[in-house]
């Protein structure tokens, strides 16, 4: 299989705290790969670095055979790599539908000129974008809320909105930071089915998740992080029985 994302020796220190400490991992194209680890292991920080929110102190990130570790976030998204946020960031004072319609790349109407000089073309594109947004709203059970302000949604609904918004960018790979947390089990299952469907269409998922049974069910491969390092990698069943992993979760300190 092809590697779509490759992280080598990544390091990031925040005044004294080494959040990511020489992290190395590969994500295969067309898989759902998991990332687990205790609180504070550096998982979110890793996502922040991969998506350009932080510059790494050292190390290298390659996405689709292109070095991306020096690119600004928006350019990384244009490469087809998009993320969601652990702490949801709804665009509160925008309608739910507007939240989704924001996402698509290279919209003609995003320039200062075309909305004035070619409103027809912009309008037509808006129709298409709206249709696509409606499909996702329908799927995520958010249709009735489409004209509500995003700030009025519940925590779980905001999670769904984030995922839908990320999908609207038409990505090759999505980094999901605890997207299932706070979503009810029925919808969670439906979501997972949808993710698998997208995976079968070739989209790659890399997901941080604390719900181990869910990780077992969803992922072909799982990485375990602790104290900024990858301490284990393998199929879910192997990981579950790995002593180092159990120790990390129980807070056992390793010597040397």
């Amino acid at each position: 299989m092809d590697t779509i994302l490759s992280v080598k020796n990544l390091k990031k220190t925040f005044d004294g705290i080494t959040a990511v400490d020489g992290c190395t991992l590969d994500v295969e194209k067309g898989t759902i790969t998991g990332l687990i680890g205790p609180n504070g292991a550096g998982k979110t920080t890793l996502f922040n670095i991969i998506t350009g929110f932080y510059k790494p102190d050292s190390g290298e990130i390659v996405f689709k055979n292109k070095k991306i570790d020096q690119l600004p976030t928006y350019k990384i998204t244009h490469q087809g790599l998009v993320r969601t946020f652990q702490i949801t960031k709804a665009l509160n004072r925008m309608k739910v539908i507007e939240n989704l319609m924001l996402s698509p790349k290279k919209q003609t109407g995003e320039s200062l000129i075309w909305p004035i000089f070619n409103p027809k073309k912009v309008g037509k594109e808006e129709e298409e974008i709206r249709d696509k947004a409606m499909e996702l709203l329908e799927f995520f059970d958010l249709m009735e809320l489409k004209d509500e302000y995003a700030g009025a949604l519940s925590g779980g609904q905001k999670k769904l909105l984030e995922l839908a918004r990320a999908l609207m960018t038409d990505p090759d790979m999505i980094l999901l930071d605890e997207v299932f947390a706070g979503v009810n089990p029925t919808l969670s299952n439906k979501l997972l089915d949808y993710i698998k469907e997208l995976r079968d269409d070739g989209v790659t998922f890399f997901l941080i998740e604390h719900d181990i049974p869910l990780v077992m069910e969803a992922c072909q491969e799982v990485y375990v992080m602790s104290e900024g390092k990858v301490i284990a990698k393998g199929e879910p069943e192997e990981i579950k029985n790995d002593q180092k992993v159990l120790d990390a979760y129980l807070g056992v300190v390793h010597e040397g």
Binding site: T73, Y74, T77, F85, T108, G109, E110, L112, P115, T169
Partner: peptide, 27 residues
């Protein structure tokens, strides 16, 4: 016309939370 266009939508997203705008590929 501008505020109601995709251009205005990007501006509003920046007002709300520019990290989201960046994550969605906006400069």
């Amino acid at each position: 016309a501008l505020i109601n266009s995709p251009w205005g939508r990007v501006l509003k997203s920046i007002r709300e939370d520019e990290d989201v705008s960046k994550a969605l590929g906006k400069n």
